[in-house]
């Protein structure tokens, strides 16, 4: 299922064929997720599920962070809620959210036709590249907390960034061999575009017969409450303590060579740090120190995980 498919030419026959589907079908946000899942499943991706811990980006999901390590091939796709406490706006801003959704695809090794596949996935969303201006604009990605970086692009659709496209070069301080290709779709952005609405809260999440559920119905209250928590009520005393104890727990689990369990605590540290940041209690110099502490943990987890897979003879290599 994982062999890199060789696409010989740059013909877009498949893409153009797809565009001829009826265009009037309305795409709700959940349709969007379903269509992307269907498309990527057909490319040999397993459809993974959102991870059950808070994280700042879908890259933090073990299906990306851990699976990008080592030689084992991997293809996965999943939707992931992402939390960015400082971006909270109490539900008042039509574009900013303290929690939003990414759709993540990870292809390892990155196939030669990865850009092509991505464009085909857009065609499944009725985005016609002969109507719209689709461009790949340089964007070099770096996650200081994960000790990871890669080169790639942000993808522009008529000037709007709708996806991040990255060839991982290093993750958890380890060289990526082989390189993983990561594609991250900003689901709300794309949906707002497809549904032609100006506020994220006006997005149709689902539609069934005469019943329509909007983003507002599902998440507006969540934004109001969580913003209040993030900015006003989160106990910084508890958060500082939590950070320290998660760090300790992580180190302990690394010593026990339990990297997957340890990684959960990297995620906890990272989210706790983000909350402290939202409470504006971390000074500029301290900030750097916290980032370094998380990175140190992430790198230790990466090393331990790699070693553990090696001990198992990299089982996915055989499949």
């Amino acid at each position: 299922m994982l062999a890199a498919s060789q696409v010989p030419s740059y013909t877009l026959a498949a893409l153009h064929a797809a565009i001829t589907m009826p265009k009037d079908t309305f795409i709700s946000l959940q349709d969007l997720i379903l269509r992307l899942q269907q498309f990527w499943a057909a490319q040999g991706c397993i459809i993974d599920q959102p991870y059950d811990l808070e994280m700042g980006a879908a890259t933090f999901h073990p299906s990306t962070f851990l699976r990008a390590l080592g030689p084992e091939p991997w293809r996965a796709a999943y939707a992931q809620p992402c939390r960015r406490p400082t971006d909270g706006r109490y539900g008042d801003n039509p574009n900013r959210l303290q929690r939003y959704f990414q759709f993540q695809t990870i292809l390892k090794p990155s196939p030669d036709n990865i850009q092509q596949l991505y464009l085909e996935s857009l065609s499944k969303l009725n985005i016609d590249p002969l109507v719209h201006d689709i461009r790949f604009v340089e964007d070099n990605w770096e996650s200081p907390t994960l000790g990871a970086w890669g080169l790639g692009w942000e993808v522009w659709l008529d000037g709007m960034e709708i996806s991040q496209f990255t060839y991982f070069q290093q993750v958890g301080g380890l060289e990526c061999k082989p390189v993983s290709g990561e594609i991250t779709y900003g689901l709300e952005r794309i949906a707002m575009y497809l549904q032609n609405v100006d506020s994220v809260y006006d997005l149709v999440w689902a539609q069934h017969e005469d019943r329509t559920i909007l983003y507002r119905d599902l998440y507006h209250q969540n934004e109001v409450e969580q913003s209040a928590y993030n900015f006003e009520h989160a106990s910084t005393e508890v958060l500082f303590k939590n950070f320290d104890s998660s760090e300790k727990e992580c180190q302990h689990l690394i010593e026990l060579a339990l990297p997957i369990a340890a990684y959960d605590h990297v995620l906890k540290c990272s989210h706790t740090f983000n909350l402290l940041d939202a409470r504006q209690v971390i000074s500029v110099t301290e900030r750097q120190q916290y980032i370094l502490r998380i990175r140190k943990l992430a790198q230790a987890v990466a090393n331990t995980y790699h070693a553990s897979r090696e001990q198992l003879n990299f089982p996915l290599l055989k499949k």
Binding site: N95, H132, D158, G159, M160, Y193
Partner: peptide, 12 residues
């Protein structure tokens, strides 16, 4: 469509 799309980006 391209124009509308770009205008939609700049507004927010």
């Amino acid at each position: 469509a391209v124009k509308q799309g770009n205008q939609k980006v700049i507004t927010p």
